[in-house]
Amino acid sequence: MSDFALETIGLTKIYTTAGGDVSALVDADLKVKKGEQVAVIGPSGSGKSTFLSMIGLLDRPTGGEVIIDDVRTSKLRDRGLTEMRRKRIGFIFQQYNLISTLTARENIQLPLYLQGMSLDEINKKISSITERLALDERFLEHFPQQLSGGQQQRVAIARALVGGPAIVLGDEPTGNLDSKTSEQTMELLQELNATMGLTMLVVTHDMHIAEYMKRVVTIRDGRLYENG
């Protein structure tokens, strides 16, 4: 067992398009310790989302390796990758991405249902996470379109955390929120990092947000640099 929750070795992604190949990510090496917080910053189009989707096992790299909990994920088939995502990784998206046909509560329940939990267990987990996130019981029965952006993002965070992941990945999680709600959200993530020992990797182009994180890396033209 290594101390690293997450490791990338020579991670490379080349998109093949009609207009030619795009090297979105080149030879990215990164080691993230358990419980560490990392902000990924960089200009638009530099490859931040690409990097995050490789780490989150949402797409396969062209070259290199992503190691999560000592598992070399390039060896896994779709089922194995899915299981990794289900058990080890929580995602928070910029557009919240709640399922529109499910209520806030059901959205949070979704990962637990997928894990095959009984309704009893699910309810227990839901009350503990809503308490922890100070989610208002009243809006749990609402559908996403009936919630404000900040409320939706809190529900999305609850959904990402409820299954007890080791790693939380956020692609501009505060990108659609006003500065006050952004700060509240970042403070919440800080607190969760402290109390739950989560490893966190957050993509942002907002330096103010990046300052919440203990470690910052920059991606420029698909290359990863450690900020000194």
Binding site: L58, R79, R85, F91, N97, S100, L114, Q115, G163
Partner: peptide
């Protein structure tokens, strides 16, 4: 499509 992506990200198997 997008919701399918979300479900897959959360950990839905293809079969699901």
């Amino acid at each position: 499509t997008k919701e399918i992506g979300v479900m897959r990200a959360i950990g839905s198997y293809r079969g699901e």
